[in-house]
Design a protein around this nucleic acid. Structure first.
Lengths: 202, 202
DNA sequence: ATATTTTAACTAACCAGTCAGTAAAAAATC
DNA sequence: GATTTTTTACTGACTGGTTAGTTAAAATAT
């Protein structure tokens, strides 16, 4: 059981993380300022340094948490006893739902990923780069199952995983760009249809 | 005919643009400094301001040029008399070649696109946003042809365009991440195979 | 000589991170 | 259980370093 003090501390940490998420999403890591995050969080800038060592650690804590939560959801799907094609369907649905719930995070990842090397220190970028790779790995594993069971064509599973995530990301990026009105999750069945059976008229 | 003076001026401008391309690609717009670009270009910082009004204009000139050159290549394909499925194949090949030749540019676009709103002024972002949309539009037009001629399924052409570009981008992103050793253009036929016929074993 | 191109040196603004101090809660002492 | 002491959570004001952009003078070209 947590004391009230501990609960409040945790709550404030969350508030700061959420504010940081919004600011990083609209400005990117480099252009986001600690002053702006502080203002958004309604704390003083110094308070941010009470909760986080520096800007980089704040950023990485944010990414860390989000990846954990998504990873857990995906793991629940991949470790089920369903057949690969059902799993792939679930994967896409989970992904679209997660995106719709938390589009900021995916914006951050999409745009910051190519230059993690340049902007975060060596120590922790291993961790996050590893997490991203593991995320693709999980999808690749499902694809491999599908190939082995003869449900999917005999193509390197990594390429199948890339194709699927590519389609999904492209749809979500478009969704963000158009302001995110129409439901994204509704697009799930078209994505799966195109992924499984392609664009050609049979 | 240009005088030597004019030719040199043009050459210096290009050198600066190319240096800027390298720096923006590794750092992103916000974290790239004019000092670093100057050093990379082997000019003083003030020389950059002789050729370009400010950092933003330097950045946009760069993007402007690259888009023009890619756009022209794509237009040559889309305006041909070939059938839509041949055009789609050409589109993918052109795209992969262009990427392989100039991976920096695509890195810049991919990561900077989501926040052009925040970082470049209102006046010119219309221009670049418009160019990006037009690029997807061109692909969409080919897809529409394909649907009308009965070569492709009856799915909104925009979604077909998104699916194809999604797969392509995902492959190229992976290529960049792994250091770009193995030939990217070789992946063209797998991309087309997956796009046209899907991942399912028939 | 004059116009163009390039530079070194400067400035004004900004920003990550620090610090000295404060108020209130918790723990220790009586 | 009342008092003093310590710890926790926070702030406003500051600093040192950095960066976009300027200026004035030097170099070069015509």
């Amino acid at each position: 059981m947590l004391t009230r003090r501990e609960r409040e501390r945790e709550a404030h940490r969350r508030e700061i993380l959420e504010a940081a998420g919004r600011v990083f999403a609209r400005k990117g890591f480099a252009a986001a300022t600690m002053d702006e995050i502080a203002q958004e969080a309604e704390f003083s800038k110094a308070a941010l340094y009470f909760y986080f060592k520096n800007k980089e650690e704040l950023f990485l804590s944010l990414i860390h948490e989000k990846f954990n939560s998504l990873g857990e959801k995906l793991r629940r799907v991949t470790s089920s006893e369903d057949s690969p094609d059902v799993k792939i369907g679930d994967l896409v649905r989970i992904h679209l739902e997660a995106f719709e719930e938390d589009k900021e995070f995916f914006q951050i990842i999409a745009s910051e990923h190519p230059r993690l090397d340049a902007e975060v220190g060596n120590r922790l970028r291993q961790d996050i780069r590893g997490r991203y790779v593991r995320y693709i790995d999980m999808i690749e594993d499902v694809m491999r199952e599908g190939v082995e069971e003869g449900v999917l064509r005999d193509v390197p599973p990594r390429l199948l995983a890339l194709a699927l995530t590519g389609i999904v990301h492209s749809f979500t990026a478009q969704w963000v760009l158009t302001g995110g009105e129409e439901s994204l999750t509704d697009k799930g069945h078209i994505i799966l249809e195109l992924f499984f059976h392609g664009a050609s008229r049979k």
